[in-house]
Nucleic acid binder design. Structure first.
Length: 789
RNA sequence: GCCGAGCUGGCGGAAUGGUAGACGCGGUGGUCUUAAAAACCACUGGGGCCUCCCCGUCCGGGUUCGAAUCCCGGGCUCGGCACCA
């Protein structure tokens, strides 16, 4: 009957000691180069990327561990499938965060950063059990890296995508630097939460707006988390409308062009507003009179009807053409302004209540609009635009909310912007062969708060001859935004050993775009938008194979603790080191993934980790006591089913449910091991499927089962779909939709047979007794439902 | 205000038109132990007139033989955008 060989199961198994096992395999993998990637002759290249951390002095956050673990599991799964997986790691070590910490602790960032990086790499990242290829590490503060950040800036400059211009910018009074629009949240600094002020400064911008349309449209074709795509759509902010030119009288300017999304309300425009950021504001009014409401006479740009109306000024941000037509009857802000200043309110869209009491912003038939009366809003928009076009007074247009990327930072800890200001030639790019412009080691790196970087004080460094005419000139003293460093790091990873080029052509065309990118959604409109822009610009120059950097992006969820967000002030921050010491990386990895769906995050509770320990202990014992060579078909079916289920779940990052299947299977195997009937093939399959989650433990057990090759190169076990399909199914029998009984039957029975058998069930027969069966619904292999009166 | 995601036992969560609550935590009972811990086994949504029946997936309607799942209305939570015309 059973082919179980008589094996002693009474000998004492050594208990599972994660410290010993994990240390052993960490060393072994390092010695054998198990995680080195063959970048030049890959079987099927798979670029598995995760967002690199900034190496803070506080150490790795449990959020990092969560992010990296989930990404690594996916990479390991792809590796088992036979792909050549490239999984690099690096450090985003420039930037305000690092510098602020240096200021607080009185250390120099140039000395602090290498220590932090070493701690991150050696003491923390290397313990996670991730298959990082450390031969391709990137550190954004390394001159060998940032020379190429500067190189990219110069390429953009040459392409007309970098520009220095003066304008109102966001200034953080605590960080003492300007910020990009993306770094201002509700008027507060993203980093320190200070209220951001407006200052007028001359700054460097990268012209991301030139790609607004393409960046938006490409979102329809990339495989990204929906919420990330939505955030980008909102940020780019497309709106359709029309530009309309109004004539002016009594003003220095003859006319002004406004942008509106409601051309259908044109006849209700009773005044105009010029923004304080209008590029030619001085043409309208002197700067010192900004607060006043000026009145000029304007004319409506439609034939025939030309009522008088006022033109006023009040402060608002620069957008569109910098000026608007105000239709108080149908716009809340215009209405309030009109009420405050006693300006007329004319209803031109029907369907609202009394517009003197409150504005109506919905659609409706046009009224008080000459011959267009009665036209619905949607059609009215088109008709008005047609008319404007015929009169050469305006046309339909599309506006984007996206603004250019301000990259100047008046700080120390970043790559100097490679520009030299010459009195004759203006802003001159540093010649490519003079890169990198090294960040000088100054002791006084404190931000000045004057709108100038502390680098300005490094006279020896600042004063240089102009590259064109050799006249005494000064270097640009601002450094670039950290987000420029991280906007291209994925291009550097495959090419770290090349020192004469940022990214090797062949490597780049083989490995890019990134196959899978996993990271936090907090970067949905920052890093992810910037890197798409950079990739697109480089693609136009033929330097990269695709306009999009990441084929797939998945945002992981957030880890909270006991129902609350983790924060230092609450004192509920999980220190991953503690848990790694106590439970080991494998247990930690599985525990984190078991908290909930990976893309949703989860609640870290200390008591839950015991279940995972028990699970791994069970695997440890059961697989070492599985010796049976039984070919039992039912067990074979069960094994094939497991392979299919777990594979599916890994593919969709549904790690929590993959773990549930593995736990269930381990229970069955443990029971069989206790009875001496556990099959070796089941144990091996379990280990292979568990390997992405618990790389150390499974490797040790795989070796103990006599394998000489690494389990991580053993290949994903094959399964036969015919065996996966159940041969016996439970069919539920309902009466009027309520489950009343069930029956075990062979899979694939036809409807008639299922109905016949269902009627024979005593319970069902009793329930149907004396009733008229009006309808029978049969879903093969699932249910039989009798509908009775 | 606009856009998006979500709301399921004591808790984390499974199930996306077919037996709601997989898997795990916690709890209860048991085995082992002098005892405890650990481990292992069993039970564990609520209720009742308890071989059976009723109720139950934020609330109210609807579609369907059948709804956690689809549709309509409302509530709450989280995230994005916001004097952007």
């Amino acid at each position: 009957m059973s082919t179980t060989e008589p094996v002693p199961t009474t000998h004492a198994l050594d208990p599972y000691d994660h410290t010993v096992v994990e240390a052993k395999w960490r060393r072994r993998w390092e010695e054998t180069g198990a995680h080195r990637t063959d970048l030049d002759t890959p079987v099927r290249p798979f670029y598995n990327l995760m967002m690199f951390p900034y190496p803070s002095a506080e150490g790795l956050h449990v959020g990092n561990v969560y992010a990296f673990t989930g990404a690594d599991i996916y990479g390991r799964y792809r590796r088992l499938l036979g792909d050549t997986v490239f999984e690099p790691m690096g450090f985003d070590a420039f930037g305000i965060h690092t510098e602020n910490f240096a200021l607080k602790s009185g250390q120099h960032p140039a000395r602090m950063t290498p220590r932090n990086v070493a701690h991150f790499r050696e003491k923390q990242l290397k313990r996670l059990g991730a298959m990082f290829d450390w031969d391709h590490e990137v550190d954004t503060t390394d001159p060998d890296y940032y020379r190429w950040t500067q190189w990219i800036f110069l390429r953009l400059f040459d392409a007309g995508l970098a520009e220095q211009r003066e304008g109102p910018v966001n200034w953080c009074p605590s960080c003492l630097t300007v910020l990009a629009d993306e770094q201002v949240i509700d008027g507060h600094c993203e980093r320190c939460d200070s209220v951001v002020e407006q200052r007028v400064l001359k700054q460097w911008f990268l012209k991301i707006t030139r790609y607004a349309k393409e960046l938006l449209e490409a979102l329809d074709h990339i495989d990204w988390s929906e919420r990330t795509v939505t955030a980008q759509r909102n940020w780019i902010g497309r709106s359709e409308g029309a530009n309309v030119r109004f004539d002016l009288e009594g003003c220095a300017r003859r006319d002004v062009t406004v942008f509106t999304t409601r051309p259908d309300t044109l006849y209700g425009a009773t005044f105009l507003v010029i923004g304080a950021e209008h590029p030619r504001l001085g043409d309208f009014i002197a700067r010192d009179r900004l607060a006043a409401v000026e009145r000029w006479r304007g004319t409506l740009p439609t034939a025939g009807d030309e009522p008088d109306f006022s033109v006023g000024i009040y402060v608002l941000g620069g957008y569109g053409t910098g000026a608007i037509m105000a239709v108080p009857a149908h716009d809340t802000r215009d209405w309030q302004f009109a009420k405050a200043h006693g300006l007329p309110i004319v209803e031109v869209i029907g369907g609202g209540d009394d517009i003197q009491g409150k504005p109506y912003t919905g659609d409706g038939p046009m009224v008080n609009s000459a011959d267009l009366d009665g036209t619905p809003s949607a059609e009215g928009k088109l008709r008005v635009v047609e008319r404007l076009r015929a009169l050469d007074r305006g046309d339909a247009t599309v506006q984007y909310r996206l603004r250019d990327w301000l990259i100047s930072r008046q700080r120390y800890w970043g790559p100097p912007i490679p520009i030299i200001h010459c009195p004759t030639h203006g802003a001159v790019p540093v010649p490519y062969d003079q890169l990198p412009v090294l960040l000088p080691e100054v002791e006084e790196f404190r931000p000045l708060g004057t709108g100038t970087s502390p680098l300005a004080a490094a006279e020896d460094w600042v004063n240089v001859p102009c590259p064109i005419c050799a006249e005494p000139s000064r270097r640009e003293t601002d450094v670039s935004d950290t987000f420029l460093d991280s906007a291209w790091y994925f291009l550097r990873y495959p090419s770290t050993e090349f020192h004469d080029r940022p990214f090797d052509h062949e490597r780049t065309f083989r490995w890019l775009p990134v196959d899978m990118y996993i990271g936090g959604n907090e970067h949905a409109v920052l890093h992810l938008m910037y890197s798409r822009f950079i990739m697109r610009a480089l693609h136009e120059q033929g330097l990269v194979p695709d306009p999009e950097p990441y084929k797939r992006f998945r945002a992981h969820g957030l880890i909270i603790r006991n129902g609350a967000k983790m924060s230092k002030s609450k004192g509920n921050v999980v220190n991953p080191d503690e848990y790694l010491d106590r439970h080991g990386a494998d247990t930690m990895r599985i525990y984190l993934m078991f908290l909930g769906p990976y893309t949703e995050g989860g609640d870290f509770r200390d008591d839950g980790i015991r279940g995972v320990s028990r699970f791994l202990d069970r695997v440890w014992r059961a697989t070492q006591q599985a010796h049976s060579k039984d070919q039992d078909l039912e067990r074979e079916r069960r094994r094939h089913r497991l392979i299919a289920h777990v594979g599916e779940r890994y593919a969709e990052l549904s790690y929590n449910t993959a773990i549930a299947f593995l736990m269930e299977f381990s229970h069955a195997l443990a029971n069989e091991a206790a009875a001496g009937t556990a099959r070796r093939v089941d144990a091996e399959t379990l280990l292979q499927l568990l390997a992405p989650l618990a790389p150390h433990l499974t490797e040790e057990l795989w070796e103990r089962l006599g394998h000489r090759q690494s389990i991580h190169d053993s290949g994903w076990p094959a399964h036969d779909p015919a065996l996966v399909a159940a041969q016996q199914v439970t069919v539920v029998v309902q009466v009027n939709g309520k489950p009343r009984d069930q029956m075990q039957v062979d899979a694939g029975l036809d409807r008639a047979e299922l109905e016949r058998r269902a009627r024979e069930l005593p319970k069902i027969a009793a329930l149907l007794e004396g009733k008229e069966v009006r309808k029978v619904v049969v879903v093969p292999d699932r249910i039989v439902n009798f509908v009775v009166s």
